[in-house]
Every structure is written in C-alpha cells, then in structure tokens.
Amino acid sequence: MNISDGASPVEKLKAAQEKQQVEKALQRLLDMCAGATGALVATADGFVVARVFKQDIAEKSLAAITSSVMSLAEALVNETGQGPCQNLIVEGQEGHVVSLRINHTRVLTAMATRNTRLGMLLSAAKVCAEQLASTLGEK
C-alpha cells in the first residue's frame, strides 16, 4: 500500500511531485553525511513518501515503524515534561538511526554506519528536515 493508492489524479500528481522533491533532499542528506546509508520520509500515519537507500530495505515496514516510534518518543518526552520532542536517536551495535518530525504530517528517518559520528548524521538530518519543512510547508 502506498500513500497514493486510491487517490484522485490530482492527488497522485501532487504525491509524485512531493516524492521527487523529497528524494532530492534525501540525496543531499546522504551526500552531506558520508557514513549515511539511507533515509526515508514517511507520513505521520506510516506510509512511505520517498526513500533513498544504499542497500535494499523493507521500506513499508520502516515507514510504519518510523511513525510508531516517533509518536512514542513524543509521548515519552511529554510525559516526562521534557517536550516538545526535537529528535529521536537510537544507537545500535551496527549503526545509528535518527528520526525527526518535518512537520505535522511528515517524519524523517536516517541511518548511518557505526563509525559515522552521530553529530554528523544528526545535523545532516536536521538540515534536511528544515529544508523539507520549508519546501513542503506546515501541513
């Protein structure tokens, strides 16, 4: 299932246009951070908008999980009075994953190898999210 399934022609055109814009931004993210292995933008309710990955990835699952963990991270900072949530950082044994909200309806997830400095990945992801927020607007 994709975000454009069952959509009108106009909506499909808009989705295609957004996919193109987002892919460009994600590619810039990967160019900016050498160790980055991939990035994806999902709708806040778990559909793939666009993705750029150096290896194969189960993009649909990743989009759904991205929306779940982002929502849970936001619930966590709100419950602990540390909100609003700025980003989510997960350090795995093999690499880092960061997630950030672009706007009300879009979430970005980016990942990098373990040798990548976390700060590099995070700042590249932040720049990407800010660019996309201004391109896509506050929807």
Binding site: M1, I3, G6, T43, A44, D45, G46, F47, A64, S67, S68, V69, S71, L72, E74, A75, E79, H104, T105
Partner: peptide, 23 residues
C-alpha cells in the same frame, strides 16, 4: 491517558482526522 495520534491519510481519514500509530 497516553495517546499517539497522527493525522490520517488512509481510508480512516474519511471518518476521523487522526489515527493511533503507537499505542
């Protein structure tokens, strides 16, 4: 309650604006 609602873009959107994505 703790909730994790997101703006719905799927068929849910026809009936309500948000949907639970976490728990």
């Amino acid at each position: 309650t703790i909730s994790t609602e997101a703006v719905a873009t799927d068929e849910t959107a026809q009936r309500k604006e948000t949907t639970t994505v976490g728990m």
